[in-house]
Write a protein that binds this DNA or RNA. Structure first.
Lengths: 171, 171
DNA sequence: TTCTAATTGAAAATGATTCTCATTACTAGT
DNA sequence: ACTAGTAATGAGAATCATTTTCAATTAGAA
């Protein structure tokens, strides 16, 4: 299995949902400093230079980043940011659903800015490649199940695991 | 969120899928020592008294147990079993899909003997209650998605999070 | 500007998981 | 049943992500 295989590669190559495009990030729009401040205020948090920098770096960087990776990136820009701050802020943003936590297997938690279009993940357990996909049918059925048991859904985690095309051919 | 709420209860009350019944465990059949040995051999592991005891205890006990809890239970019966053994064996069984790992939020991993009828979990983020459900439609759509991207699926994780009926009324 | 509570960074604490290694115990082959 | 070869074991140490602590600093309301 993925989580027990120390030989898998470490990149988290991401295949964008069909239709794919050439964007580096989902967020083609750029965020001004005011945008960033707005987002922080909406979380009922005070605006600090650290938080602005962290959020900005998260937005500009690639998706699926770990707290450690984000910390290192931010460090290079301004060493007046501690790991605890990055970590705490990520947690806070996760609570406010500004970012989404991805826990795949037993690897360190990765974060992504919550995309406007919800998607789920399919991971190749051989090479670690992550494919993102959307499927309204699945969502609909989830709601049905929730209703059946009287639950009011807040969110969900759907992760498919398997072997991707190229790994199937290799082996 | 669940994982940040230190006030949620710690029991993992489980609601069986409709139609429910009065069984303590999914496994009404009892396992003889030979059954246990067979299962261990099928995993290409040697039969040892520790593994027999661990598997037996897992089978008799409630579902959704942590490595620590299982270790404590097994300890009471035979103190010649170390935590490492329990832990390693659980990992091994997870790899062979004899048990399934449940990672809900950031709480310690829980294990359950992989039920013959696959099911997923819906968790109340207020009280921690776990409902198990089956839904063939969702599974079918998952396969469709996988085929679309050329993946051969091995397994998946689907966890719904929300507020259960009684917690909705409380608040 | 002043005050207060929120935020911060560094380091230590925690907690789960994983590894190490000397010892013991399976089991296949006799 | 005996034995060699290998797998498994337990205790504890190591690792790693995550979380907390706390004294110093800072944001932002009044």
């Amino acid at each position: 299995m993925f989580e027990h295989n120390s030989r898998h590669n470490n990149n988290d190559e991401t295949v964008l949902p069909i239709p794919s495009n050439n964007e580096t990030s989902y967020f083609d729009e750029s965020w001004t400093e005011d945008d960033l401040k707005q987002i922080i205020r909406k979380m009922n948090l005070k605006v600090t230079p650290q938080r602005i920098l962290i959020l900005q770096t998260l937005h500009e960087g690639r998706v699926h980043i770990t707290a450690q990776e984000l910390y290192e990136k931010v460090q290079k820009i301004n060493s007046d940011v501690g790991f605890a701050t990055v970590y705490r802020f990520l947690k806070g943003m996760a609570e406010s659903r500004v970012v989404t936590e991805l826990r795949m297997g037993s690897m360190p938690t990765r974060y992504e800015l919550t995309p406007k279009k919800h998607h789920d993940h399919m991971t190749c357990t051989a090479c670690g490649k992550i494919v993102e996909f959307q499927n309204k049918n699945i969502e609909d059925h989830q709601e049905k199940v929730a209703k059946q048991y009287g639950f009011k859904l807040t969110h969900h985690v759907l992760e498919l695991y398997g072997i991707c095309t190229s790994c199937q051919m290799k082996k």
